[in-house]
Amino acid sequence: MSHNAGPYAIEVEHLTVSYGPSPALLDVTVRIEPGLLAGVIGPNGGGKSTFIKAVLGFVKPDLGRVRILGQPVEKTKGLVAYVPQRGAVDWDFPITVEQVAMMGRYGRIPWWKDPGRQDKDLVHQALAMVRMEDFRHRQIGQLSGGQQQRVFMARALAQGAEVLLLDEPFAGVDAATERAILDVLSRARAAGKTLVVVHHDLATAAEYFDRLILIKQRCYGYGPPEAVLQEELLSEVYEGKLRLFGAPAGGGA
């Protein structure tokens, strides 16, 4: 498949989204280069998930536009994939690891055909990349939290997605699992994928990501971690609720 990649993997311009009278996102403009691992940070309720959903086209923007690899998001079927939060998945569902990954191929298999050799190869490659081959016949409820995240990454990879959006993959997993997920994210980046990850732990943000997007309704910063993790910027966004960089932001009281 050929597509006009353009200079950016994701271009978000003047994006404004509202659910009620006040906007969840206001005039957000971000351009993310391909092949990067980018973290979306910001306070709870600040619009991180809305940002991801708007990029995916799940929510209609009031204003602004989103382009994926130079094309409007509606025309990029398959090139962009979503890895849901663990809590959003029905773990009782009668489905195996392999079937979830094969779901990534469904958009490309006509209804009258069964998955072919090429589809099966792509599914196995995707499961190998996330190191879940040995679990392919397990029902998904029998996996650990980190393994479950990796299965959904495999689905996105099997789909052939170039841009992956992940909603809090590190939420509620232990340190070893966090490492394993990060390892898989790095492998996907090495394969040329662009990854955008909603993340809530500022302490690890600089270590994990090539770029950070700081969002609280507006975009307060986009760039390398050292450029975004500025104390005055963070204390403005987190309103002094942050105690990370030495002295408490609000002073003695």
């Binding site: 799940f58 398959g78 994939a81 569902f93 079937q99 979830v100 779901m103 990534g104 958009g107 689905r155």
Partner: peptide, 19 residues
């Protein structure tokens, strides 16, 4: 069947997959 499986398991994903 494929579409029903996709819809039932993960509606948001089904939308992005063109179901």
């Amino acid at each position: 069947y494929q579409d029903f499986l996709c819809l039932s398991f993960d509606r948001e994903y089904a939308r992005t997959a063109g179901v």
